[in-house]
Design a protein around this nucleic acid. Sequence first.
DNA 1: ATCGCTTCTTAACTTAAGGTAACGAGTTTA
DNA 2: TAAACTCGTTACCTTAAGTTAAGAAGCGAT
Lengths: 199, 199
Amino acid sequence: MQLTNDKMDQILLNFLARYVILSEEEQNVIIDLAIFKSFKKGTILLKEGQLSKDAYFVLQGCIRCYYMVDTEEKTTAFYTESETLNPPGVLNHTPSEYYVDCLEDSILIVASSETDEELFAKYPILEKLCRLVSEDLHSKSQIAFDNFKISTPEQRYLNLLEIRPDLAQRIPQYYLASYLGITPQSLSRMRKRLVRKAS
Amino acid sequence: MQLTNDKMDQILLNFLARYVILSEEEQNVIIDLAIFKSFKKGTILLKEGQLSKDAYFVLQGCIRCYYMVDTEEKTTAFYTESETLNPPGVLNHTPSEYYVDCLEDSILIVASSETDEELFAKYPILEKLCRLVSEDLHSKSQIAFDNFKISTPEQRYLNLLEIRPDLAQRIPQYYLASYLGITPQSLSRMRKRLVRKAS
DNA sequence: ATCGCTTCTTAACTTAAGGTAACGAGTTTA
DNA sequence: TAAACTCGTTACCTTAAGTTAAGAAGCGAT
């Protein structure tokens, strides 16, 4: 599927409209700032040790965060359409502890956080927007963390199927397993167990 | 230990100074807004199903978030001195899914998020402050989530001892166990295993 | 067509966590 | 003082995850 520039603008504006009402001018400022980039599946957007200054908003495709622990990839997050990855380094200027790569061909908005200060002074509503988005992301991430903690791997898998059924379809099972905190073998066994239970 | 009002103000201002430089006037506005409250150990600050409009900043003591799953408490967070709990309900007006209680006699700042709008209009730096605090909390919570996910219960315990050694001292072990995602019995066994390994 | 790569599955064995129950030390309450 | 409660530990058995190894299905590339 091909996305026109107009459509991409619209996806972004729809997302922002969840938080604040923007004037035509403010919308244009944002659209002008937004840098749309395409990436091939497998592209590494951020490596451990790199200083990331960019936030990523997913227009199409899927990106993934993972840590390298010894020789093993530990996947901690997937971001798909209209989701935002804002690596910590953007704020505190420390090198990234994880990798980010594209699991599919993806179109992203790459938002550099450099020019923000003057912009916020000129358009205070953008500061409000950032506050609201950040509060919302924080709250969602808290809830996700809580759910993860209070669940067993099996409940986490069932929960994933329920709230993000798309992921189970589009993402290889061994990434999912890592995301659930178990090995691919365990996930495979678990699925068999679940089928047995269901019948 | 007894805290004077001046000391409490100072703790709060020290915290805020990590994020922005505030004028005397702005500091006074915040101090005037801050409501200091004392709570006895065991006090329940928030119940599942309640709509919370308050954020809590801990001046002294310790509060804890937990879910009731069937008849079991699942502890997901502890907040101690200079830490902030901002329940999701403040934003999205949904009832809380968890409980909050005091594990110790505590002095908290209870911040109602009602008056914020006019205030932000008058003092834009307060909006910036909230944005920065929120981004920081989000980033920290992300990292904590990641660390939790990529660790085994044992690593989580060792990590806790390292980065929050105070908690292991002041918090009963069965709350810690729940927080680590295991039963008190498993934690007890694990500690024995670790001693055996160490020697 | 064959090779290599990715992805999922199965199996056998080991390790550690869960469930249940019981005990004991320390503290609070009646 | 006795009873109740809190908190940590230990034991026994069960369940499920980790480890290692192997195999099979699907896919793309040469």
